[in-house]
């Protein structure tokens, strides 16, 4: 997408097995420059290597991916984060995104798809898995919208359409074809959704996430 240089990647996951598995799957397409198994280790490795993308586990002892993001995202704005998790818990995923991750994919993603997602994040785009798209649609349709001045609290019709197609399992390319738009346009829609997700202080977002947790 950008130049031909492979993106430099740091893997953060408390399971060594997962790290080595991911490393094998994507090593042809990206340049893995570091690994970390704990939050402090991750912060140290990221500071030292300054990678393009950090593949970040949502659940780790000591605060998880969110703790890493909150410590370092502001300090190193050029490092981009992609959450990689087996978690289904909506509030965890939303929390990591709101802390600054540029996307969320599940660990069941195939190697080539993951490498593709890393490249996409490296070039500044957002990566939405079908599940994340579903979460976002759910969160933003929870209640009638009172749109405030900055327009952060509601999705546009187009953004909604794009998210629906992603939730249906369409790739960005397929979404573009379906809506007769360019891939660039789709990417900018998804990035706009990400921005809204991160910046909106729409209280339904948090309330919705906690509701999901209620047993």
């Amino acid at each position: 997408m950008t130049d031909e240089r492979q993106p430099r990647v740091v893997l953060v996951d408390d399971h060594g097995l997962v790290r080595s598995g991911v490393r094998v799957e994507i090593s042809g397409a990206v340049d893995v420059v570091g690994e970390a198994g704990t939050v402090p280790e991750a912060i140290e490795v990221i500071r030292r290597t300054k990678p393009d993308v950090v593949l970040l586990d949502v659940h780790m002892p000591g605060g998880g991916g969110r703790a890493v993001l909150e410590t370092i995202a502001r300090e190193l704005p050029d490092v981009r984060f992609l959450a990689l998790s087996v978690s289904d818990a909506a509030e965890d995923v939303i929390a990591v995104i709101r802390a600054g991750a540029r996307g969320y994919v599940t660990k069941s993603i195939s190697g080539p798809d993951l490498a593709d997602a890393v490249r996409r994040v490296a070039s500044g785009d957002a990566v939405f898995s079908p599940r994340l798209a579903g979460f976002v649609l759910d969160a933003f349709s929870a209640a009638p919208h009172v749109v405030d001045d900055n327009g952060l609290d509601a999705l546009s019709h187009r953004e909604r359409e794009v998210l629906r197609l992603i939730a249906r399992g369409y790739t960005y390319r397929e979404v573009a074809k379906e809506l007769v738009l360019s891939i660039k346009t789709i990417e900018s829609h998804v990035s706009a959704v990400l921005r809204k997700l991160q910046l909106s202080n729409r209280h339904e977002l948090t309330r919705w996430a906690t509701d999901r947790r209620l047993v």
Binding site: P130, G134, L137, S141, R164, A167, R168, G169, Y170
Partner: peptide, 20 residues
């Protein structure tokens, strides 16, 4: 592996079943 997406809105219920 294939995808199923269901959306329940105020006026409509939609389900997509999509395989590649």
């Amino acid at each position: 592996e294939f995808a199923v997406f269901a959306e329940i809105e105020a006026t409509e219920v939609t389900v997509f079943v999509r395989d590649r």
